[in-house]
Design a protein around this nucleic acid. Structure first.
Length: 675
DNA sequence: CGCGGAGACCTTTTT
DNA sequence: GGTCTCCGCG
């Protein structure tokens, strides 16, 4: 059944005040922003990719295109938000119809509107990785016929299923290409996948991959909706195109099929997400799929000094699989990058601390400094040293704010009330009650389902209002262990109170704390104060969302780099920033320290097994180098304490460092000075 | 069946 | 060092 699409009157063209930043090449930007679609912009690191896209959006609006005809897809929600702010500033106008965000967040918005078409209810909840794994685990248990210890674990399985979905390949083919040792398991894995899919559907939950896959299917299977969105999103702009996977590029192609107004921007040298299914060949083959595409290269770098750029060029030159491009610096000369050899990781940490303090003396803010590393645990010693020296730092840690146990416990209350079919949230809640564990939760879930399906058997419930969760809970509380009866009654009371205020997530959090979670925290965790503070913050954070649904979507979809900024405690005190290289993508800092450049750590020993991933490691190193504007320090320890076994391991200097010609770097050898 | 203690095992990157 | 798993006790 076709839908009506209301055409709004064209707005008169607005006055555009693009203020080309002084250092930028104005002609170049004008050429790119006015480029006819389809267009492919190959833009090197620091060449102002984001700025180009921002101007492009502003340009389109200036041409009289209504904001709701534009879809802006970026790598993080934060990037989209910043670009949209910038556009609003440039135009001094209302651009509220403009949609911008990650593929996942846009998928979420669209799927909520049409969930009925794919057999979901609009209040579906989103599973994070951990939840998805847990659900997968119980599917494995059901399919597994005998106790086979070599059966692939939920971790591996989650990766396989995700990769298959994102590359749009059948599972058997994915196994053949990437996990050949599991090829004989294809049939079992496929049946687990089938069960996993149906369990998600009954629970009315989606995982990350579903947000893309179901979005794609929705458009593919519903001609009217396809047409609706093809007409609505008349201009598509995609940032970081080198990191899109097959599913994402197919989505773009599907929506763009009618008008072909696509502008993609990316840099194949910065492709660092292939393990997630990203395929930088999407960029290479773009001109094949869009024969009319104009290709535009930006090889000027506005960010870094020529010395840093020379190093970047030297590093990436060893890679064979790429568009050839050579970045030229637009800035004046600076200091050579420095390679620092350290004895131990602690000495390396002291080096960073001391240098950071010196730079602060020289007038740099700590905000201008960043320490980058391959994996989260590489920053361990540095964190200790920074804390010891009292230097403020912020860190994008491995554990995300929203994935910590206490945040998830509280969120489970809100999620379950919004979506009572959410099995995982229910079980999580029930297991908080003393005396109820994994098996008990399974049984109580079955009991709850039964009360839900047959409310007539339980006179206390009102059949016309199946959402009276608290009374259903009371009804099936009989099946809870006797010693848990009091806690169970308390639980159902809390739920009934929460149902009253189910559209006020902030008040819900406070109520959950008052109703006993506070006490639970106190008894369970030694760092009870911190966790309580987190929840306090979460409650404040929730205030900004008009609906519970938006709050929950936000919890599931924002990355930790974004939450860092969102935390209300963001006092203006300058902090040195610690981050993995992956999470520093798209950012820039005056001074960058890249630490732990030891062979086996960076490049990581796992990646050296395959030649393509060895090239990707080098691209990652390239990304790290090109984050620096003025100064760059590359350091490595010779000895590193091996966590746990308390024996030290001698490290080899990273092969990335030995490959660098001596004349383009300075070498510092650390000596211990006396006070 | 829940829970606490003892041992094994692992350490890539994330929307 | 921290998490997950298994085992035996209550």
């Amino acid at each position: 059944m076709p839908r009506d699409y209301v055409l709004r009157p064209f707005r008169p063209p607005v006055e555009l005040h693009i203020n080309y930043a002084g250092e930028l090449n104005r002609q170049q930007y004008e050429a790119v922003t006015a480029l006819p679609s389809p267009a492919l912009v190959i833009a090197g690191a620091g060449s102002g990719k984001t700025r180009t896209l921002t101007y492009r959006v502003a340009y389109l609006l200036e041409q009289g295109i209504p904001p709701d005809r534009i879809l802006l897809l970026t790598f993080t929600n934060k990037a989209a938000k910043e670009m949209m702010h910038r556009v609003a500033d440039l135009l001094a106008g209302d651009i509220s119809g403009l949609w911008g965000g990650t593929f996942h967040s846009i998928g979420n918005r669209i799927l909520r509107r049409h969930s009925d078409r794919i057999g979901f209810k609009p209040e579906f909840t989103i599973l994070d990785r951990e939840d998805a794994k847990e659900l997968l685990k119980s599917c494995i248990e059901e399919v597994k016929t005998n106790k086979d210890p070599r059966f692939p674990k939920a971790d591996v399985l989650a990766d396989i299923l995700s990769l298959a979905s994102n590359t749009r390949r059948p599972i058997a083919e994915t196994l053949h290409e990437e996990y050949d040792h599991l090829e004989s398991r294809a049939a079992e894995i496929t049946s687990i996948e089938t069960m996993f899919t149906s369990r998600k559907r009954t629970a009315n939950v989606m995982d990350f991959d579903d947000l893309l896959l179901l979005w794609f299917r929705l458009l593919q299977d519903n001609q009217d909706l396809l047409e609706l969105y093809q007409r609505r999103f008349q201009f598509l702009l995609i940032d970081e195109y080198q990191d899109t996977n097959k599913l994402q590029s197919d989505l773009i192609d599907l929506i763009a099929d009618r008008h072909k107004n696509v502008m993609v921007v990316g840099d194949d040298s910065q492709s660092i997400y292939s393990w997630r299914g990203a395929n930088f060949r999407n960029i290479l083959h773009f001109p094949d799929r869009y024969p009319d595409a104009r290709v535009y290269k930006i090889e000027t770098n506005y960010r870094s000094t020529p010395e840093i750029l020379q190093l970047a060029n030297a590093v990436i030159a060893s890679n064979t699989n790429q568009f050839s491009k050579r970045l030229t610096a637009s800035r004046g000369s600076g200091a050579k990058p420095v390679v620092v050899a350290c004895e131990t990781a602690f000495e390396q940490a002291r080096f960073v601390v001391q240098r950071a303090l010196e730079l602060r003396e020289e007038g740099k803010s700590l905000n201008d400094l960043a320490v980058l590393y391959r994996s989260h645990f590489h920053a361990l010693e540095l964190q200790l040293e920074l804390t010891r020296s009292g230097i403020p730092f912020s860190i994008t840690s491995g554990i995300r704010f929203f994935e910590q146990a206490h945040v998830k416990d509280v969120a489970a209350h809100i999620k379950w009330i919004a979506n009572p079919t959410d099995e995982l949230s229910y079980k999580r809640l029930v297991r908080l009650i003393p005396g109820i564990g994994g098996k008990g939760a399974d049984k109580l879930w079955a009991a709850f389902r039964e009360c839900w399906n047959h409310p007539a058997d339980h006179p206390s419930t009102d059949a016309t209002r199946p959402k009276e969760l608290a009374s259903l809970l009371q009804a099936c509380g009989k099946r809870a262990p006797k010693k848990s009866a009091v806690a169970w009654a308390q639980f159902s009371t809390t739920i009934s109170q929460l149902e009253e205020i189910s559209e006020k997530p902030s008040s819900m959090i406070r109520l959950i704390l008052d109703a006993g979670y506070d006490e639970y925290l106190r008894n369970t965790y030694s760092n009870y104060r911190n966790r309580l503070e987190d929840l306090d913050q979460l409650s404040n954070y929730a205030l900004q969302f008009p609906t519970t649904e938006e709050f929950l979507s936000q919890l599931a979809l924002v990355s930790n780099a974004e939450t860092d900024e969102e935390k209300p405690s963001s006092e203006s005190e300058p902090r040195i920033h610690l981050s993995t290289i992956h999470q520093a993508k798209g950012l820039e800092f005056s001074v960058a320290f890249v630490i732990m450049l030891c062979d086996g750590l960076f490049p990581s020993s796992r990646s050296l097994e395959r030649s393509e991933s060895a090239e990707e490691e080098r691209r990652l190193f390239y990304v790290a180098i090109t984050r620096a504007k003025d100064e760059l320090y590359l350091s490595y320890p010779l000895i590193r304490l091996n966590a746990g076994y308390s024996n030290s391991v001698v490290q080899q200097k990273s092969r990335f460092l030995t490959d660098i010609p001596d004349e383009i770097i300075d070498t510092w050898n650390l000596r211990s000075g006396s006070y």
